[in-house]
Amino acid sequence: MKPLIVLLTSFVLLIFAIKMVRKEYDFALSARIAMSIMLLFTAIGHFAFTQGMSMMIPKFIPYKESLIYLTGIFEIVLAVGLLIPKLKVLTGWALIIFLLFLLPANIYASVNHVNYQKGTFDGPGITYLLFRIPLQILFIVWVYVSTIKIRL
């Protein structure tokens, strides 16, 4: 829920900030910057909640904590890439693929009731997917529209 709030709040503020500076609306740029802000926000979680996030990864995958750090760094790289005009399309595709790869970890975490912030197994469970899957789809569509397909 917090990443969605960060994304939407940033987007709304950026629409008006860019309008004030450029004298015109640029929804795609506002959307990319907002997604960058959200990615930086979520990347912080990879470093603040490393142990809990490593619980979201199935047991058969080794080096869980290293993987959490790497994905946090990758989110930062993606956040920067969205802001570089020549890289926005490539970054958009990379981010969509990344978001698709995250979905199994979210499903695993839900099935196992992982609470990544506490590092416990008392999370919301499978009902979390009723929110998370549509959220993941929203993120994918958001990235596609603002970087690849449509110019708003």
Rank of each mutant, 00 (worst) to 15 (best):
M1T: 09
K2R: 11
P3H: 08
P3N: 11
I5F: 15
L8H: 05
T9V: 15
V12P: 08
L13N: 13
I15N: 10
F16S: 07
A17P: 09
I18G: 01
F27Y: 15
L29T: 04
A34D: 05
S36F: 05
L40D: 00
L40V: 06
T42I: 08
A43R: 02
A43F: 06
F47V: 07
M53Y: 12
P58F: 10
P58M: 08
K59Q: 15
K59S: 15
Y63S: 12
K64E: 09
E65L: 09
E75R: 02
V77F: 14
A79Y: 08
A79P: 03
G81M: 01
L83N: 02
K88L: 03
K88T: 05
W93E: 01
A94M: 14
I96H: 02
I97L: 13
L99I: 06
L103C: 08
L103H: 05
S110C: 10
V111K: 11
H113T: 11
V114H: 01
V114W: 03
N115K: 07
Q117H: 12
K118H: 13
G119S: 09
T120R: 05
F121L: 14
G123K: 06
P124F: 13
I126Y: 12
Y128W: 13
L129N: 02
L130D: 05
F131A: 03
I133M: 03
I137Y: 11
L138T: 01
I140P: 04
I140H: 08
V145N: 03
I148M: 11
K149V: 06
R151F: 14
